[in-house]
Amino acid sequence: MVNDMSQLFWMCSIAGFLVFIIGIYGLLVTFNLIRAIIGLELLTKSVTLFLILAGYVTGQTGLAQALAITLIVIEVVVIAIAVGIVLCVFRHNRTIDAQLLRNIKG
């Protein structure tokens, strides 16, 4: 039983970690602002998985769900503001393929 739980934890962690890598890669490689937000969303997905998983394996699903619900509510507002800023950039430039993200990486 303990072994099973341990294995499930490890498998889910690997999946969360892979989604995390995909999100970071998508965020770093793209110049499209909406794609950058989608990359951030993928990162948030992996974090939601980690929180729920931690709650499940330690038997605190109540706490983990409360945290995950708060996280989801905040996530929506952040995404809405980010998309609002992208739309404002679009009204200025008529494009969202700006090279805005280039100097973040420096």
Binding site: F20, V47, F50, V78, L100, L101, I104
Partner: peptide
């Protein structure tokens, strides 16, 4: 707008790191 977007991206990255850490500490 550029400054705000950069701030959003890096701040979101920071919160993702913190939340991963919180999940690990919950173990």
């Amino acid at each position: 707008l550029e400054g705000a977007f950069k701030y959003i991206v890096l701040s979101a990255l920071a919160t993702v790191l913190m939340l991963t850490s919180i999940a690990a500490l919950l173990l």
